[in-house]
Design a protein around this nucleic acid. Structure first.
Length: 494
RNA sequence: GGCCCCAUCGUCUAGUGGCCUAGGACACUACCCUCUCAAGGUAGCGGCACGGGUUCGAAUCCCGUUGGGGCUGCCA
């Protein structure tokens, strides 16, 4: 049995009203439904819960809310677990508990509903959805009008069980928003059990939270309107409600809530594109919150010590891919060379790589790695950065070729370089000085002179430093590509 | 429509009545460095939505306006 008491440090700043105090063991939960890829918004909520659980010695409960038969797929459940582990929320950690599956608690949900019915806190209603709407229309007030409140209906096929919302006001105590007050007059008698007897989200969610002894419900703001209903349920079930905390939603450029349909929200996808978990975690934490001090790039250990729900911002936060990328690039650069090389491996050895896998040379890549590390924002970019080293015929960018080879002296310069590189010491300083000298003969600075060589060898105008690249490519291959480019230039009129 | 939430540079934020001439980060611009591109360095651009109060003093407190968002299912 868990006997740990929520650390007073959670409320240590001394400016909190009595209602945030609870002497229940600190137990938080993250309760996603497995209806698709793992959402970045969900990841942030999970991280907020996780940070608190770790600092306060509390428990993070993972509960999979798999009660929507139509939309649930088992593979999404594993996806959630894997994605959580990727961002550091791992079942190996002592603060982690679960996963539990909501579908296995249906009996408890129904039992709770029955208790509510027997206590008179809920009643059955035989109106169909359409009928409810018709009445609402006739009443001029949206929602269910309490038609069956006093009809004394028994349970029966097609009859839903509705909660009898009491008169009065429901005040929700929220750690990020303070007191939020709802007039019960505006809350309809909501459905607990469907016509087929299955429990609804509101009920299942509350019953599970009670069963799992959840002390703090930290979730996205979109649930705030549900909260008075759930709080009434806690009370009706005879349990003191938890401490609530509703964190702002994540929005897109149009300032709409991030949606699976419109926006790129899958954590798995970011991972596949070469975003680092640490960078992702760090960025996600700064959406609605900032660590103290004047840098936002902080290790998770700092997040754990600094993060406070009470400091979370109240307004929606824009999920900015540019800033995420900047964080990611910074985290990539902070990697040790070995770690960087290791992190690149999955991308270099992927099946969709443009070169023949047999031509990939890890030694060559290792030599190129430090030059690539400061030049990529995501790990998957490394492929295009080094492809010319492993491709037999790197594709030539047409525009780049005409631009750099079109100059009056390009072909002459190229042949001179070919001649000189045939005998030059194959070392980057020597290669550089050789080209520099040849360029001078044409009044070209190195910056200009290197362009046609680069395009001839790599197919592009931009890329890693040229002479190091040539060294790695080798004399023979370099010469071969320079020759090919010369021929190609000769074949082009002008 | 109703209920609820929110409002500091373009964006994420610091700020909890005097340390604010409002700080940092991303983005953007310029310059330096430089074999391209990056990285790095320096500088710059840019904000308290508006209107009323309260106060000696307000980005910070109150009210209103405007603007945004969330919810409004026998989905979760």
């Amino acid at each position: 049995m868990d006997t740990v008491v929520a650390s007073p440090r959670l409320y240590s700043l001394g400016r909190y009203p009595a209602w945030v105090m609870t002497d229940r063991p600190l137990r938080l939960r993250f309760a996603p439904s497995p209806t698709g890829f793992f959402h970045v918004g969900g990841a942030r909520t999970a991280l907020y819960n996780w940070a608190i659980a770790q600092r306060e010695g509390g428990t993070f409960v993972l509960r999979i809310e798999d009660t929507d038969e139509a939309r649930n797929q088992p593979e999404w459940t594993q996806g959630i677990i894997d994605a959580l582990a990727w961002i550091g929320i791992s079942s190996d950690d002592e603060h982690f508990e679960g996963p539990y599956f909501q579908s296995t608690y249906a009996d408890a949900h129904i039992a709770a509903a029955t208790r509510l019915y027997e206590a008179g806190a809920a009643y059955y209603c035989d109106l169909t959805g359409d009928e409810v709407q018709e009445r609402a229309k006739a009443n001029g007030k949206p929602g269910y009008d309490g038609y069956s409140r006093d009809r004394g209906l028994e349970a029966g096929p097609g009859r839903v069980l509705r909660f009898r919302v009491p008169e009065g006001t429901t005040i929700v105590h929220d750690l990020v928003r303070g007191e939020v007050s709802f007039d019960n007059f505006n809350i309809e008698d909501f459905v607990l059990l469907r016509g087929n007897g299955s429990p609804m989200f509101l009920l299942a969610n509350v019953v599970d939270d009670i069963t799992m002894r959840i002390s703090h419900v930290v979730r996205a703001e979109e649930h705030l309107p549900n909260t008075p209903k759930q709080q009434m349920l806690w009370n009706a079930l005879g349990v003191e409600p938890p401490v609530w905390a509703h964190v702002p939603v994540l929005v897109n450029e149009q300032r709409k809530k991030l949606s699976k349909r419109r926006d790129k929200v899958a954590v798995e996808q970011y991972r596949a594109e070469g975003f680092l978990a640490d960078g992702m975690v760090n960025y996600l934490m700064t959406l609605g919150w900032a660590p103290s001090g004047d840098t936002e790039i902080v290790p998770w250990s700092r997040v754990v010590t600094d993060f406070r729900l009470e400091d979370v911002n109240h307004s929606p936060a824009f999920f900015d891919l540019k800033k995420l990328s900047a964080f990611n690039a910074e985290y990539i650069r902070a990697l040790s060379l070995d770690a960087f090389i290791e992190a690149c491996a999955p991308f270099l050895l992927a099946p969709d790589v443009p070169w023949n896998p047999e031509h990939f040379n890890p030694v060559v890549f290792t030599a190129m790695a430090p030059l690539a590390q400061t030049r990529v924002t995501r790990l998957d970019e490394v492929v295009a950065m080094v492809d010319f080293l492993f491709l037999v015929e790197p594709p030539i960018d047409e525009a780049a070729f005409t631009k750099t080879m079109g100059g009056p002296n390009a072909r002459e310069l190229l042949s001179e370089v070919i001649a000189a590189y045939g005998t030059a010491e194959w070392e980057h300083e020597a290669l550089k000085e050789t080209l520099e000298a040849i360029g001078e003969g044409y009044q070209l600075k190195l910056g200009k002179a290197q362009a046609p060589i680069r395009v001839a060898v790599t197919g592009r105008t931009v890329g890693p430093p040229l002479f190091e690249s040539l060294v790695l490519l080798g004399r023979d291959e370099t010469l071969r590509r320079l020759q090919a480019a010369l021929q190609r230039a000769g074949a082009t009129p002008g």
